[in-house]
Design a protein around this nucleic acid. Sequence first.
DNA 1: CCGCTCATGTAACTGGTTACATGATTTA
DNA 2: TAAATCATGTAACCAGTTACATGAGCGG
Lengths: 189, 189
Amino acid sequence: LSDLELVALGIVWKRQPCTAYAVAREFVTSPSSHWSGSAGAIYPAVKRLASGGYLRSTEASRGRRARRAYSLTPKGARAVRRWLTPPLPPEATRITYDPIRTRVYFLAILTPAERRAFLDEADTQTRSQLEVIEAEVNRYRHAGDEFSALAMSEALYALRARLDWIRDLLFRSEGDADRHGERDKDRLH
Amino acid sequence: LSDLELVALGIVWKRQPCTAYAVAREFVTSPSSHWSGSAGAIYPAVKRLASGGYLRSTEASRGRRARRAYSLTPKGARAVRRWLTPPLPPEATRITYDPIRTRVYFLAILTPAERRAFLDEADTQTRSQLEVIEAEVNRYRHAGDEFSALAMSEALYALRARLDWIRDLLFRSEGDADRHGERDKDRLH
DNA sequence: CCGCTCATGTAACTGGTTACATGATTTA
DNA sequence: TAAATCATGTAACCAGTTACATGAGCGG
């Protein structure tokens, strides 16, 4: 089972009985943009899970159009539990892709002033994301979904860590004033 | 230009003149598993960049086989600088996908004891990753590539934040002892 | 009855993946 | 000279994407 399939399985477990559309909406409204939650991804994935025996659908067609609500089978529940049981695959604990970090690798191509502009922008955007995630945590908390709130709070920790790091970079770059013209790869302070 | 193409462009900028193979190796040896750095991804990407005028290749064929070293054109350098210049696209500052966080959403499906086993595993694996990344930062520092060291240190901040978060979760779960049998979705403490 | 949301799907495409094939150079 | 590494590529595949098409139910 792929990551997307396992997450979809987990979502169905939380909201069962639950339509494929509801699963898709969960991805769409997620503050992470890793998966789009497009119909072209979710409907085939749910179908695969159903034909694999992980989900069972209680058909409730109205009119001449299908309308299926899915629930987990015991096999589906086992798959989720196995996904959460040690040992975890090595890629689960490796560092993740971060567009800001990735850009910083190449920051030496900019002038000191441009670098500060980048870091200021990153700082501003990260702060605004922090508010978004705080609201999200409160939303889960309010809905009584404590584990989702705790999960989402990891993003809070991560964003605050990023802010600390950005502040650190800004502090280090304070020394190099607007000495334009020199774009020394290795100079920072 | 896609993210992979821009990162590839940045790598060539740092190491120019530089072969496609060297770019691929950079991805392969990266502690992030986001891109595999497979030949099937890198060689076509570098070719696209070259035919788009972002890279120029100084051919140095030996024998009857091509052997190209790439450098950035002014257009290529502009593309990298534009990538690092505000405004950043919204997806650059959104929270990233995290396999551990994602799993925690569904932790209620486990018994309290199993949950602690998961968190212990996550703690152990994260600590070992921390060592890997510390070594990586030192490697960059030693090589005189200060910006890569600073970039990689973001991962250090993120991993330490994750450890704090895991410790928080472990602390919160201390209350629920080995009361098996009850798998109440909403109970944690 | 119009527009919005819920709901289910398909088709074409794309940007990666793994696996394979091959040649040149270096090192034990 | 054998093995490892450097180096360049292709082919088949696959899991997602966007875009489109369609239908059902509901509120103003």
